Computed example of a mutant assay.
Amino acid sequence: MRSKFLILFLLLAQLTFGQNKLSIVFIGNSITQGKGGANGFPPPTHAVNYLKEQKGVDDVAFVNVGKSGSTTVDWLPGSGKYFILATKAADSLFAKKDHQLIFSMKLGTNDSAIEGPNGAPVAKEDYRKNMQTIISELLGKYPGCKVVVQHPIWYSTNTYNRSKYLEEGLERLKTYIPELDAMVKDYDNTNPGLVFKGDTKAFKYFKKNHLKLFKPENGQQGVFYLHPNEEGVAVLGRYWGKAIAKAVL
């Protein structure tokens, strides 16, 4: 009799604490794609490792489709060149019917540039429109999927590699953040429970700790800070993981 109760308890525990199976597609630019160094892993890997540590998470499958230099213009369905990467990844993960499909999006850095990336500079209104177009297409194509929108992170005001960012670019990037938050609120009304505000803290944290968390890079206006180093990608990934957990667990 005692053994029967033990078996029943274990079965109930498995049902209670092992129900969360996640499939995540990470959409982004070089910050999503990059490893921070030769021995590093990109932020999505660190985000997934964080999620796997959380109580009740049974499995996490993921695909990182971050593409260096990309803008929201590049990710637009139909006219953009990278949206198909997201759908190919999602198609394989959507087949896992016992998993919750999630899209984690972090775009905006390259949109904010003065010149260089495709479509830059992107005005805040167009940035929001592009993000909304991408998200709405995903929601329509993958019923029941969830989208977590991560805030872009800080970069130094002398950032100027092949593309030109500088202070003007950073100020434009800052204008994107209220647009993202307002967009998420709109989805709360039109598609409740599907689109979530992701990380909001990394921007300030990376600004404050840029010497520690970024790779120093030589540019046309001196040493600039744009891409996280190995420690930085780990920190950023954890921020993303916490935001995803808060949104969907």
Rank of each mutant, 00 (worst) to 15 (best):
F203W: 11
Y187F: 15
F206C: 10
G34P: 01
A234T: 11
E230K: 08
Y142C: 11
V248G: 07
V63F: 00
Y225W: 08
K55P: 02
K174H: 01
P216N: 11
G37I: 04
Y239V: 12
F9I: 12
S79T: 15
I7F: 09
L180T: 01
L51C: 07
G34Q: 09
T190I: 10
G28V: 13
R238P: 02
A182R: 14
P117S: 09
F224L: 07
K201Q: 14
K207T: 06
S68T: 13
V148I: 13
T71P: 03
A202D: 01
E230Y: 00
V223H: 06
N229G: 11
L107A: 11
A38R: 13
T32P: 03
K197V: 14
K52T: 04
V195I: 12
K141P: 03
L22P: 01
K52M: 10
K197G: 11
K21C: 07
V57H: 02
K197P: 04
K106L: 15
V233M: 10
T190V: 08
L236R: 06
K129C: 04
F206A: 09
S68P: 10
I177D: 01
A113C: 06
L194Y: 05
D181A: 14
N49Q: 03
A86I: 11
S68R: 14
R238N: 15
Y165V: 07
P228V: 04
T72M: 03
K88S: 15
Q54E: 00
Y50V: 09
L107E: 05
F224Y: 10
A89K: 10
H227D: 06
G78Q: 09
F26T: 08
Q221I: 06
E115W: 00
D181R: 13
S112Y: 01
K215N: 07
N218T: 15
G119S: 13
N39D: 11
S79K: 15
A38G: 08
Y50P: 03
V48Y: 00
N229E: 08
P143Y: 05
T157M: 12
G80V: 05
A245H: 06
K67V: 15
K164M: 06
V184A: 06
K204F: 02
V57M: 06
W75H: 12
T200I: 12
F206W: 04
K96A: 12
G140H: 09
A120R: 02
S104P: 01
L249F: 01
Q100N: 11
K81T: 15
G116E: 04
T190H: 01
Y142H: 12
S112H: 03
H99S: 06
K21L: 03
S104L: 01
D111V: 05
L22M: 14
G222V: 07
E230S: 08
S70T: 14
G34D: 07
S163F: 04
I7Q: 10
F62G: 12
K97R: 15
K141Q: 14
H46Q: 07
T159E: 00
V149R: 03
P42V: 13
A120D: 02
N118W: 00
N158T: 11
G144D: 09
S92C: 05
Q100P: 07
G36M: 00
G232S: 08
T16S: 13
T45A: 15
Q220D: 04
D186M: 13
G219R: 02
G222T: 08
R172E: 04
G37L: 08
Y176A: 15
L166Q: 09
